[in-house]
């Protein structure tokens, strides 16, 4: 499968990526457009006569919030994986009584509208006095990902051969050790997949941030967008600029993570 001419594949890959990212390019284009040109007919395909007004605003006002977003994103990933992976291992391999029902509940749990979830959290957090705190927001954001994570982990872990688990058992490993030193290392792919999406959800979350952290000193970057949405008027170049600035560090993180994963997989293949 890998024997085809690779440059041809790369070319096709670049074209497909370009098509996929065209809307992102358009967002960048709008972020650089003056308000007098925003609804020009026909539109400029490139930022002719660009304005950096949006970026000046964002860079002077929003940068500290990137750190908050990063902490929230990573915290959510850790919490989600810690909760979901053991449960998925049990569902896939230990088959607890009621496991099917649990998968089912996880599925249904995701159907509860976000705004209703946020309202529930508001009531709970208010009484606990943890509104407007980062740990509170991490826990809330994790609800976006935990059911997903358990289901995905279960799907992947059910592919792990039972012989491997039995072998560990014969070697005298308990369930926890089997999980830590056999199951988790094999499941690296799914851990990365789950972590990626968990991070992305936490990074781009709006609804929990605005309900649970609107008064906090440390707000995620998405809330920075609100600064440009007045009650009568929206500053689109600044809104788009915020989104661009907010996505650059995370995009770098994504590319690096993917490279790391790809490298790891190849290393494993060589060892074969």
């Amino acid at each position: 499968m890998t024997s085809r001419r690779p440059w041809w594949n790369t070319l096709l890959g670049v074209v497909l990526t370009a098509i996929m990212l065209f809307p992102v390019y358009w967002m960048v284009n709008v972020s650089l457009t003056k308000s007098t040109d925003m609804r020009r007919n026909p539109p400029f395909l490139f930022p002719v006569d660009p304005t950096f007004e949006g970026y000046t605003k964002v860079l002077t006002q929003q940068l500290p919030y990137l750190g908050t977003s990063l902490i929230i994103g990573l915290g959510t990933v850790v919490l989600t994986v810690a909760l979901a992976a053991p449960a998925a291992f049990a569902l896939a391999k230990l088959r607890p009584i009621g496991g099917g029902a649990l998968s089912f509940v996880l599925l249904i749990a995701q159907m509860i509208p976000g705004i209703i979830m946020a309202m529930g959290f508001y009531a709970i957090y208010l009484n606990l006095g943890i509104l407007d705190t980062i740990p509170g927001l991490i826990v809330a954001d994790s609800t976006l990902a935990v059911p997903f994570a358990v289901l995905i982990f279960t799907a992947f872990m059910s592919g792990i051969p039972n012989e491997l688990i039995s072998a560990a058992k014969i070697d005298g490993a308990g369930a926890w050790r089997t999980f830590r030193s056999v199951v988790m290392p094999i499941s690296r792919n799914s851990v990365v997949t789950v972590s990626l999406f968990t991070f992305l959800w936490a990074w781009s979350d709006f609804i929990f941030a605005s309900t649970l952290d609107s008064g906090g000193d440390l707000q995620p970057i998405t809330m920075g967008i609100y600064r440009y949405i007045g009650n009568n008027n929206q500053e689109w170049n600044a809104i788009m600029a915020t989104a661009v600035v907010a996505s650059i560090p995370a995009a770098v993180l994504l590319v690096v993570a993917q490279r790391y994963v790809a490298a790891g997989v190849t290393a494993g293949a060589v060892k074969d």
Partner: peptide, 24 residues
């Protein structure tokens, strides 16, 4: 159109009239 979009259209200089608010 939201009122902002409508205003952006007007800002292109192509339109004769725009209904919009005091805030503009």
């Amino acid at each position: 159109n939201t009122q902002t979009t409508s205003w952006e259209e007007f800002l292109t200089g192509e339109f004769a009239f725009a209904e919009n608010g005091t805030w503009q």
